[in-house]
Simulated scan of single mutants.
Amino acid sequence: MDRPTVEAYDKGARAYADDWHAQPTPTDLHDLIRRFFHRASTADIGCGSGREVAWLNAHGCPAIGYDASPGLLAEARRRYPELQFAAAALPQLDGVARDAFDNVLCETVIMHLPPDEIAAAVRALVSLLKPNGVLYLSWRVTRDAGQRDNSGRLYAAFDSAHVRDALQGMTMLLDEEVVSASSGKVIHRLVARRPASS
């Protein structure tokens, strides 16, 4: 992960968590999870303060949350002490079991990576899936050139074709650019299924 971005999340972990939990419920995301995910083991990569990990666990998708920010993980554990969270960072995802999950959720995370790390990060997400597993992947769309916000968080600009190329061999179930019901930002989201044998 981009180090200044992780540091920004660490420094402002409580404020970011409060903001995310105050946002409208991401009903569009939840509808897609209900539509595409198996009711089975799930990894939330870039789980932030744990909001979606809690929702997944409450809706039949037992989930573990992973994040690169110690500050956000502390917020997640404070808010949801009964749930499981662990440290892991894209693109490597060291310490996360491969071929172990029926579903992987990665909601608006990869735009915080330098563009030359995005393909490797997508391949790492795919590697977590069991055969026939489903990946939900989204990112906030930045046009033309990457930028940083006032806190120093990176929002990389990259061609969505790089993501699709890294998903070669997967079955694409959804590919769309929309306005997020929760954040109000333009996001690109993909849902893809790993082959039953690969």
Rank of each mutant, 00 (worst) to 15 (best):
D2L: 11
P4G: 10
V6H: 03
Y9R: 12
D10I: 08
D10K: 10
D10N: 14
K11F: 13
G12K: 11
G12H: 14
R14F: 09
R14D: 04
Y16E: 00
D19A: 12
H21T: 13
A22S: 13
A22P: 07
T25K: 15
T25L: 12
D28L: 12
D28P: 11
D31S: 06
R35W: 12
H38I: 00
H38A: 11
R39T: 14
A40T: 00
S41D: 00
A43S: 07
A43P: 09
A43I: 03
A43N: 00
D44R: 08
I45E: 11
C47W: 14
R51F: 14
L56M: 15
H59W: 10
G60W: 02
C61D: 01
I64W: 08
Y66W: 11
D67W: 03
A68M: 12
S69Q: 05
S69W: 06
A74K: 15
A74F: 10
A76Q: 14
R77V: 15
R79N: 13
L83Q: 15
Q84M: 12
F85N: 06
A87Q: 03
A88C: 08
L90H: 00
Q92L: 00
Q92R: 04
L93T: 02
L93C: 03
L93N: 02
V96L: 04
V96K: 05
D102Y: 14
N103T: 08
C106P: 00
H112L: 00
L113E: 01
L113D: 00
D116A: 04
D116T: 01
D116H: 03
E117D: 03
I118H: 03
A121N: 09
A124G: 01
V126C: 00
V126F: 03
L128N: 03
L128K: 06
L129I: 04
K130H: 12
Y136F: 11
S138K: 06
S138Y: 09
S138D: 05
W139Q: 06
W139E: 05
T142Y: 08
G146W: 04
Q147P: 03
R148A: 01
R153Q: 11
R153S: 11
A157E: 11
S160H: 08
A161V: 02
H162R: 08
Q168N: 07
Q168T: 05
G169Y: 09
G169F: 11
M170G: 03
M170K: 03
T171I: 07
L174P: 06
D175F: 15
E177K: 05
S180H: 10
S182H: 10
K185Q: 15
V186Q: 15
I187A: 05
H188W: 15
R189T: 09
L190K: 01
R194F: 02
A196W: 10
